[in-house]
Design a protein around this nucleic acid. Structure first.
Lengths: 157, 157
DNA sequence: AACGAAACGTTGGTGAGACCAACGATAACC
DNA sequence: GGTTATCGTTGGTCTCACCAACGTTTCGTT
C-alpha cells in the first residue's frame, strides 16, 4: 500500500505547504532548544531582543517578540533564575522592571544563535543559496504585507 | 516611537518567517472556515480526502490527513450530524466504519474549496504568478525532503 | 483450530501555546 | 486632582496535537 498520500486538494496549497514547512522548522528548533537547556523558542527571542535593545521593561520585550505580558513574566523569571538576565525595579518608573542581559546571557545567546542557525541549514538543505535568498525575500514580502511590519535591512549596522 | 521592531536576529530567519507566514495563512483560512460554518480546517481536509478516495475507514482518513484517530472520530461525528457524510458499519470488516461523502457533502466541499482558494489569493497577493509557482515549488521540495512524502504531480488526472 | 498480536473506533485525559481578565501599584493626562 | 492608562503578576480559558486504555474484531502463525 502506497504511503497514503495527502489529498490532492491540499498538496499544492500554499497555506498547507507553509504549515508543513513551518512545523518542520519548529520541530528542528525545538529539538535544539531542548538540548541547549531551554523549553522553547521564546527564550531565544527574549534574549535576542534584550541583547539588541539593551535594558528595557518586560512589556516592551513582549511587544517586540509578540509575547503576552503574562508569558514574558514566566520566561523572564526562569531566565533570571538561570543567571542569564537581571531584573531590577526601574528607579525612573516604578511600575517597570528593568531587565538587562548578563555576560552569561550573552554567551548563552551566542550558543543558541548557533543552534538556530544550524536548524535553518537543516531546514533549507534542499535549496541552493540563491533559492534560499529568493524564498526568504518572498516570505519577507508576505509577512510585511499582512502585518505592516518593516523587516527590510534599512540599516543593517 | 517606531513600531517596536522584531529582533534583527529573527527577522530574516527562515523558520521565523515561515512561522509568521503560516500563521497568517491559518488565520485567513480559519476566518473563512468559521463563516462557512465549520470549526477548523480538518473538516475541509477530511471532506477532501473522502471525496478523492471514496468510501473508506476513519483510521485511513486520519492517516491521509495527519489526524489522530480520536480527533477523526469527533470531526466525522460532527460532519455526519450535518449530513455531509454517512457512517455505516463495514460488512467486510466489522471493526471498521465505512465513511462516504454525501451529495450535500460534495456541494459543501465545493464551497469550502472556493473559500480556501480565496485565502491563498489573499495570502500570496504580494507575489507575482511566477513567484507563487517558485515559492510553492521550493516549499514542496522542503516538505518532501523532511517528510518523505511524494507531493509531485506524477498523475494530475 | 487455536491463540497471541494487531487494527478498529471510542472515551477520556495530558501538555503546550496563545490568549484574556483582573488585581494592586504607579504614572500620565487634562 | 481626579480620571485614565500602563506595569507586572496571578490565575484562569481555549484550541491543538497527542497518548492510553478499553472492548471488539481480524490477522498471522503455528
Amino acid at each position: 500500500m502506497d504511503p497514503l498520500s495527502t489529498p490532492a486538494r491540499l498538496r499544492r496549497r500554499a497555506t498547507w505547504l507553509l504549515g508543513q514547512s513551518s512545523n518542520q522548522g519548529h520541530r528542528l528548533i525545538s529539538e535544539r532548544m531542548h538540548t541547549a537547556g531551554v523549553a522553547n523558542r521564546s527564550y531565544y527571542s527574549l534574549l535576542a531582543a534584550l541583547s539588541e535593545v539593551g535594558a528595557t521593561s518586560q512589556a516592551d520585550l513582549g511587544r517586540r517578540v509578540g509575547l503576552d505580558r503574562s508569558d514574558v513574566t514566566a520566561v523572564v523569571t526562569d531566565l533570571e533564575a538561570k543567571g542569564y538576565l537581571e531584573r531590577t525595579a526601574d528607579p525612573a518608573d516604578r511600575r517597570r522592571n528593568l531587565v538587562r542581559i548578563t555576560v552569561e546571557g550573552e554567551k548563552f545567546l551566542v550558543l543558541l544563535d548557533a543552534e538556530v542557525g544550524a536548524a535553518q541549514e537543516d531546514l533549507l538543505s534542499p535549496l541552493s543559496p540563491q533559492e534560499r535568498e529568493q524564498l526568504i525575500g518572498m516570505l519577507v514580502r508576505i509577512v510585511e504585507h499582512h502585518t505592516g511590519l518593516r523587516l527590510s535591512d534599512t540599516t543593517e549596522r
